[in-house]
Each structure stands twice: as structure tokens, then as C-alpha cells.
């Protein structure tokens, strides 16, 4: 049954598969828990997903460009420790730009090694993951950092504030998603990222500056990490020196769930947002049902594989792989 459906309406369903799954989960959870669909709960899920979400926007763009970025987790630790530590030393108005510049430098190193030297992105960002984690530890001397005066700083608005009754992290996440969605779908840069990810050789043969485009995707990724770090630092008003550990793979999971192909050339920011929200709602729903938080991981496992499987199956027109 499923197979014939897939054949008939294949690509259309596959494209909306994540949306369908999302709706199914939402209905299921709302039937099981009254609080699930309450405005408070939805807002809190949105707010919690903002950090992963902002990072996922950047990673989506890198992946559409045909590469991976596993260094975002370490980079988040780096940026958060830096902004929190500098906050008390030079004040937030300087700490933020200094941290953003430093994080962009890390992104530029990624971009240089991968975009210009053409080294394999998985290995480079794996190396950067390790190196940046080391940098954080060296910088902090292995200590965690804190902001002393937590109530008297305007830095709090990014993580704890609200505008028009909507928490700032949600506003930042939503705005960024929209901006980058527009860039990726309607501007020449977006078209070029898709082309370079889809076929780098043909892009060069079409006069596209491939190195430059890939370099830019890593700068964007680093920028997103820096923004996520501002939200995180502001919310926690402190930072552990390994706060971002493991984020890289959670972020990647959300991106994949959103249907972005790891082969490059296709993907969408808005569907990544759905992927992020879906993971967040699953966790939230399970907690409301009285399950421990880590059951989310089990569900995520199944959801990722089924989602990508259906996508792959729709493309090849049969459910099971033909390899013997």
C-alpha cells in the first residue's frame, strides 16, 4: 500500500513528509496531554529550540553547499565562554562584537581550508572540533565562567527578555530563519550555493567563484553560532567550558530531518526549522507524558531513519534498497 502510494505521489509526499510527520506527532501528543497545545507550552518549546535552531540555519546552508560542519558544537562553547567572560571584563557592548569577530575568524579558517584549499570538510571540521575545544579549555583554564551581576545587565534581553510578549530568542530565531530563507530562495547567492553543492565542477564551468561561495557558507555558519552563543550566554548568564559538546550532531540531525540532502544541492531553511521544532516538540511531549528526557533520543533515532528512508524510497520508486 505504502509502496504504491509512494510511486504514485512520490516526490510530492516526500517533500511534505516532514510536515505530515510533524502534524501527526502534534495531534498524537495533544490527545495524550492537555497542556501540550497550550500557548505557554508551545512558546516554551519554541524558546528552547532557538539555540539549536539558529545553529541549524547555518549548517543547512553549509550542507546545501555540499559540505559538513561538525565544528559548530565546539564553536558554540568557544563563543559562549568568550562572550560571558568578556562581559565582566570589557562590558557587553564590546564583548559582543569581539566575540562575533573571533567566531567569524574560526569560520574563516574553516572556509579557507575547505573552500580555498579544498580539503575534505568532514575531516577539517572534525579537526576543528577538537582544536577549538582545546582553545576553549586553554582560554578558560578549564574553569567555568559566570557573569557576576546577572540582574543589572542589558545583556539579559537576548536570552531572558521579550518583545510584544514573545521571548527574544524566538524573535531572533524566526527573523534569522526568514532572512536566510529569502536569501537562499530568491537571491543570486542562494542560487549559487545550490549550484556549487549540486555540481561543483559544472559551477566552475559556469563562471561561479566556487571557493568564494563555500567560504561564505562557513562564515554564515560561524555567524549563526555567534548569535546562538549570545542567546545561550544571556540565558544562562554563565557557561561551562564544554557547553556545546554534542550539539554538532544534534544540529545535523535536525537538518537531515528537514530533508536537506548530505550530498549537497538541495534543502530548505524552513524545513530545517520544522526539523528543529519537531525534535523539540517530541522531547517536550514525552516529558509531559512523564517520560524522562532521554526517551526523546530513542524516538529521534526512529524518526530520522524513517524520514530519510521514505525520502530515499520515494526517489528510487521502491521501499527497500535493491542491493542484495
Amino acid at each position: 500500500m505504502l509502496l504504491t502510494r509512494l510511486k504514485a505521489g512520490g516526490p510530492a509526499i516526500a517533500k511534505q513528509g516532514i510536515l505530515v510527520a510533524f502534524i501527526v506527532f502534534m495531534i498524537a501528543f495533544s490527545l495524550m496531554s492537555d497542556r501540550f497545545l497550550s500557548a505557554d507550552n508551545i512558546m516554551s518549546v519554541f524558546r528552547q529550540s532557538a539555540i539549536i535552531g539558529v545553529m541549524a540555519i547555518g549548517v543547512t546552508i553549509v550542507v546545501i553547499g555540499g559540505n559538513l560542519d561538525l565544528s559548530v558544537g565546539s564553536m558554540l562553547s568557544f563563543a559562549t565562554v568568550l562572550v560571558v567572560d568578556l562581559h565582566d571584563k570589557i562590558g557587553p557592548e564590546l564583548a559582543i562584537p569581539v566575540m562575533v569577530m573571533a567566531t567569524l575568524c574560526l569560520g574563516a579558517i574553516n572556509g579557507f581550508l575547505i573552500g580555498i584549499l579544498r580539503l575534505n570538510s568532514l575531516i577539517v571540521t572534525l579537526g576543528m572540533l577538537s582544536a577549538i575545544q582545546g582553545l576553549v579549555l586553554i582560554y578558560s583554564g578549564g574553569q567555568n565562567v559566570d557573569i557576576v551581576d546577572q540582574s543589572g545587565t542589558w545583556f539579559a534581553i537576548f536570552g531572558r527578555g521579550a518583545m510584544f510578549g514573545i521571548a527574544t530568542p524566538i524573535i531572533i530565531f524566526g527573523t534569522l530563519a526568514l532572512i536566510f530563507h529569502i536569501i537562499m530562495t530568491t537571491m543570486p547567492f542562494g542560487r549559487r550555493v545550490h549550484a556549487v553543492g549540486g555540481n561543483p565542477t559544472a559551477s566552475v564551468f559556469s563562471g561561479i567563484p566556487r571557493s568564494h561561495v563555500v567560504f561564505m557558507t562557513y562564515l554564515i555558519s560561524a555567524l549563526c553560532v555567534a548569535i546562538a552563543a549570545i542567546i545561550l550566554g544571556s540565558r544562562v548568564m554563565g557557561s561551562q567550558n564544554n557547553v556545546g559538546q554534542g550539539y554538532e550532531l544534534q544540529v545535523l540531525a535536525a537538518v537531515i530531518l528537514g530533508g536537506t540532502s548530505l550530498l549537497g544541492g538541495s534543502g530548505s531553511i524552513l524545513r530545517t526549522v520544522l526539523g528543529v521544532l519537531m525534535l523539540a516538540f517530541i522531547q517536550n511531549g514525552l516529558i509531559l507524558m512523564g517520560q524522562p528526557y532521554y526517551t526523546q533520543r530513542l524516538v529521534t533515532w526512529a524518526v530520522i531513519i524513517v524520514a530519510v528512508w521514505l525520502d530515499v524510497a520515494a526517489k528510487r520508486g521502491r521501499l527497500f534498497s535493491p542491493i542484495a
Binding site: 530568491t186 543570486p188 542560487r191 545550490h194 549550484a195 549540486g198 565542477t201 564551468f205 559556469s206 544541492g265
Partner: peptide
């Protein structure tokens, strides 16, 4: 070398000049 296969026909055809085919910041 010639085509980005998964891109549509129109986008493939305008690829070398997409940077200049703009209205404001948009394609």
C-alpha cells in the same frame, strides 16, 4: 561539467549570469 543535474532547466540556463539578472537584491 555542463549541468547541475538536479537543478531545473531554467536555473541551469541562467546560471552564469544569475548575479546580474537581479531586481533589487532578488533574482
Amino acid at each position: 561539467q555542463g549541468l547541475v543535474l538536479q537543478m531545473n532547466c531554467r536555473d541551469n540556463m541562467t546560471l552564469p549570469q544569475v548575479q546580474d539578472l537581479t531586481a533589487g537584491p532578488f533574482v
